[in-house]
Each structure stands twice: as C-alpha cells, then as structure tokens.
C-alpha cells in the first residue's frame, strides 16, 4: 500500500468547487499551510470550511477567505490578531458563519468520524446557540442535541507519516487534526517526514492509516504564527 503523493498540488487537485473541507489546526499551531496554499494555487469556489478559527493575517485560511474561496465557515472563534479577511466579508454578508462551541465542534467532528449521527451535551443549554435544537433531560439535567459533522475532504498536518497513512503529531499541533482525519471522506495529510512502513513505532501512532487517504511530505513546513509575525502575504 502506498498513499504517498509527490506534491501538495497533486494531493489537493481533487478538491472541487462547493466541497466541504475540514482544515486542522488551532490558531497558528497545526495548520497544514502548504496544503492550504496549494489549494489557493489550484483555486476552488464556494467551499464550506470547518476550522476552529477564521484565519489570521494574510496567509493560510485567512488568504483563502480573502481570495473569496469560502462561502461558509463553521468554527468556534472567528477572531484573531488580524481577522480582517473574515470580518470584512462577514459584516458585508458575503460569508456565512455557523458558530459552534469549541468542545461541541470537536465532538461533532468525532461523532461524524465514528458513525454517531447525534449526541446530547450540556454545552450551550439555555443559550442563544441552542435555539431550535432538541433538548433532552437525563438524570435530572437538561442537554442539547447536536448532530455529527462530516466533510468531503480534510486537510491535516502531522509530524511523522508513513505510506500506510499512519501519523504522529508534534507538541500541541495535534488539536483537531486526528478528529478531522476520521470525519472526512478523503483525508489529505502533510507530514514533516515521510518514513517507510515500519518506520513509526506502532505504539506511537496517533492517527492509524485507515483514516488517511493521501499523504505528502513537506519538509521544514511553514508555521502560521511565524509567517504572521514576519508579515507574510500569500500568494
């Protein structure tokens, strides 16, 4: 089995207009910047993007939004140091926002990957974000029903990967990445180092290869926070 791909461009070539795309990362940590930039190079319109944030500055997801590739964003916190790209379009009514509490976002993605269509959570009960959602009482407390989230594609970033799709993550760059690998029909991963099968100790594997469809080595990956501190603009 060999899921490895020669380039980021080749890996994202299959993403069409209108697709739902999960993008891993939390703030500047764990975002697959090279895959996002390859998608910007390819171009795609009217995407629904699922990410914790709405990008920062002029690179990565913020650049996708600036290029008017995103019609709808599902996220928990669309604010950052420099959220201009999203904020301007949101206030102009040019981008739709589905705001989801962060833990609910994570669990909805996990549920999507695990084949669980809905679940109940205490989060958001009695608040504006629970409006219109079914409520259930369990053992004397009230809970809000939330539905699974699935995607056509996931773009994720790992540290070590092998051609089977097995992956590890670096530090806190793990965040949403393993969950999104599970919840997408086609998961595309960039890893800092691609090793032969057997090169990752099976005890250290965080994402088993069954959840990954395509894997590309990007040595010395860019890091969103570092790019923003340098004032980088893409393209």
């Amino acid at each position: 089995m060999d899921k490895s791909c020669a380039s980021a461009a080749e890996a994202v070539a299959c993403i069409p207009d209108g697709a739902t795309v999960m993008i891993g990362g939390f703030g500047g940590s764990g975002g697959p910047i090279e895959l996002i930039h390859a998608l910007i190079d390819k171009g795609a319109k009217n995407l629904t993007v699922i990410n914790n944030n709405a990008g920062n500055g002029d690179v990565g997801l913020a650049a996708m939004i600036r290029e008017d590739m995103v019609g709808k964003l599902i996220c928990s916190f669309p604010k950052s140091k420099d959220p201009r790209a999203f904020t301007e379009r949101y206030l102009d009514g040019k981008i739709e926002l589905e705001l989801v509490p962060q833990g609910t976002l994570a669990e909805r993605i996990r549920a999507g990957g695990a084949g669980i269509p809905a679940f109940y959570t205490p989060t958001s009960y009695g608040t504006d974000l629970a409006k219109g959602k079914p409520v259930g009482d369990f053992d004397g407390r009230s809970y809000v029903q939330e539905r699974w989230l699935k995607a056509d594609f996931a773009l994720v970033k790992g540290e070590l990967g092998d051609p089977m799709g097995n992956m590890t993550y670096r530090l806190a760059a793990r965040n949403f990445n393993p969950l999104m690998c599970m919840a997408a029909r086609h998961t595309i991963a960039q890893v800092t180092k691609l090793v032969p099968a057997g090169g990752i100790d099976p005890e250290q594997v965080i994402t088993p290869g069954i959840f990954v469809n395509s894997i590309v080595e990007i040595a010395n990956p860019q890091q969103e926070e570092v790019l923003n501190r340098e004032g980088a603009v893409y393209p």
């Binding site: 928990s76 916190f77 669309p78 604010k79 959220p83 999203f86 904020t87 949101y90 206030l91 926002l97 705001l99 989801v100 509490p101 962060q102 833990g103 609910t104 205490p122 989060t123 958001s124 608040t127 974000l129």
Partner: peptide, 13 residues
C-alpha cells in the same frame, strides 16, 4: 462578530 471558543463548554463539568 460573535465568537464563543470554549467558554460554553468550560462552564459545565
């Protein structure tokens, strides 16, 4: 722009 992050989760549990 509304932004909730983890606030609604943290108050439970």
């Amino acid at each position: 722009v509304p932004a909730v992050g983890g606030a609604m989760d943290l108050v439970h549990g």
